[in-house]
Design a protein around this nucleic acid. Structure first.
Length: 499
RNA sequence: GCGGGUGUAGCUUAAUGGUAAAGCACCUGCCUUCCAAGCAGGCUACGAGGGUUCGAUUCCCUUCACCCGCUCCA
């Protein structure tokens, strides 16, 4: 725990806009709630994070617990699939939580989390599903209604609408304050074909994971993979959030980095531990500090019914502090998804062990599912550093690998040979890295600008460069300078960025 | 979805029932040999839609967006 100054979300959002990281979507039309556009620097940053994930998951994944390299292949599935996919996954129907509001107390409840106890024909009492007997009795006492354990109890979702007037809400005093349940279907609907008709409804994917499950068979048959193996995918997902909040943290369109790890059921616990450990290491490697990241095992009552364990990696965002917000969930999903798709599609999802041809099973799945856009937000928040001692007053402390610009080339003056040498160096370096060339205005302004966008190194060309071919390297965090020869600049950057 | 707040330029703030001022930033030029310096010039705003009014950025209504709290987050 450190006493670092509290970072103000307002300032971070303002810098993101000012410098071209993230803009409100459709801003010139007054915006649109829950959507964001990534500007030039935000796009670079997001790509850097995405590429690091792809490299560390697909191209160069970790060594497994048995000392062998693990095998993970990539996928890029369609955003729109046959609507049956989402029926099988449970996103259509099962997960569209009906909500009721209480007009008296202004509270909102999930209808499937409320029970109704029929004390008499005219007096029905709604209580939270999880309430103990004791709490229920207390509630009845408060309402001055006699309690009897033999009263019929039903879930609110099974109560007829015309009986709602008899129900006293869980926190209300009077009956009839609950509104009729409203279904919140979190999936975006769209119509396929130029002419919309009743049966042309399809859905934008609510997660990238289902694209992986429905391609599991294809990949098994084509990619020469053997269980255990993984399939990884990065891409957009869409959820019709009731209430988008907190900049890009909860938005209706976002980007995920998901990997499904298929393994024999008996090995699943071992792999679960393995991926928990690997993923926590990874988030550190992209620059998130130990002080602001926690790892949280879900309690049994938080788990969805098919999950045999979920482990969250969470970051202390300025808007959640002192609490945390989720970056990645590592879930042990059993064989729920493959079984669902087997049942709904009629396609066998069994894996036959090629070693003995006898051992048949539906693989179990460990799912490390990370939010790419949430990762970007965490890195932005982490990097934002207030420093009154420098002209910009603030700098972005990105790791060199995450920084949208790796270096800036700055001729000290716009005269003589300075710009010429600078341009030559720029043309060489940009073949390897994202590089800025900035000739205009005085050097102080240019350093300040680079600080605000988090460029780790500035190379400055001056008269001495003309004389002996050396440039100054200015390091972002310390503002310290050293001279190196022009010939060494590329090697210097390669060493700093690639390690 | 509920309650509260906010909305004038990229940012921070003015003024006004008669269409808006400044500082910083940004751009151009000059000048500058290392941290937003100086000089000259330039661009940019009343969130949107209605209503009242001769006239609305100002008053009223609606709406949109953002912030805080509640709710929600499979």
């Amino acid at each position: 725990m450190t006493d670092a100054p509290v970072k103000d979300m307002k300032d971070i959002v303002a810098l993101c806009k000012r410098r071209g990281f993230i803009f409100q979507a459709s801003e010139i039309y007054g915006g649109i709630n829950g959507f964001w556009d990534y500007g030039p620097l935000g796009t670079e940053l997001k790509n850097n994070l995405r590429d690091a994930w792809w490299r560390d998951m697909v191209l160069c994944p970790p060594i497994g617990p048995d000392g062998q390299p693990v095998e993970i292949v990539g996928l890029d599935s369609a955003i729109i699939q046959n609507p049956q996919v989402w029926v099988a996954s449970g996103h259509v129907g099962g997960f569209s939580d009906p909500m009721v509001d209480c007009k008296e107390t202004k509270k909102r409840y999930r209808a499937d989390h409320l029970n109704v106890i029929k004390a008499s024909d005219a007096q029905w009492v709604a209580v939270n599903e999880g309430n103990e007997q004791e709490e229920v009795e207390k509630r009845f006492k408060k309402l001055n209604i006699k309690y009897d354990a033999s009263y019929a109890t039903v879930s609110l979702v099974d109560v007829d609408l015309k009986d709602y007037s008899k129900i006293i809400g869980p926190d209300a005093k009077e009956a009839g304050s609950l509104t009729e349940p409203k279904a919140f279907n979190l999936l975006f609907e769209t119509k396929i074909g130029a002419v919309a008709s009743e049966d042309s409804t399809a859905y934008l994917r609510g997660e990238t994971a289902q694209g992986i499950f429905i391609n599991y068979k294809n990949i098994l048959d084509s990619a020469r993979v053997k269980v255990p193996f993984g399939i990884a995918q990065v891409g957009k997902a869409f959820r019709n959030e009731v209430n988008p909040r907190n900049f890009i943290f909860r938005s209706r369109e976002f980007e995920q980095m998901e990997m499904e790890w298929f393994c024999p059921p008996e090995d699943a616990p071992q792999w679960f531990e393995f991926w928990k450990e690997e993923r926590r290491k990874w988030w550190k490697s992209v620059g998130l500090s130990d002080n602001d990241v926690i790892f949280r095992e879900h309690d049994a009552d938080e788990l969805v019914f098919y999950s045999k364990g979920t482990f969250d990696i969470e970051y202390r965002f300025p808007f959640t502090a002192p609490g945390y917000g989720e970056l990645e969930g590592i879930a042990y999903r059993g064989n729920y998804d493959l079984t669902q798709h087997q049942e709904h599609s009629g396609t066998k999802m069994e894996y036959i062990d090629p070693m003995d041809n006898k051992n048949r099973y539906i693989p179990h799945v460990i799912e490390p599912a990370a939010g790419l856009t949430r990762g970007v937000l965490a890195i932005l928040c982490e990097a934002y550093t207030v420093d009154p001692s420098r002209p910009s007053g603030v700098y972005m402390n990105f790791t060199p690998a995450m920084a949208p610009k790796k270096a800036a080339i700055l001729p000290l003056t716009a005269k003589g040979e300075h710009p010429e040498i600078a341009t030559k160096l720029y043309l060489e370096l940009r073949q390897h890295f994202a590089i800025d060339l900035d000739i205009k205005q005085n050097i102080g302004k240019r350093y300040a600008r680079q600080d605000e966008i988090g460029t780790p190194y500035c190379f400055t060309i001056d008269d001495e460069t003309v004389e002996n071919g050396t440039v100054t390297v200015r390091e972002r965090n310390t503002m310290a300078q050293e001279r190196i020869h022009l010939d060494k600049v590329l090697a210097f950057l390669q060493e700093k960025i690639n390690g």
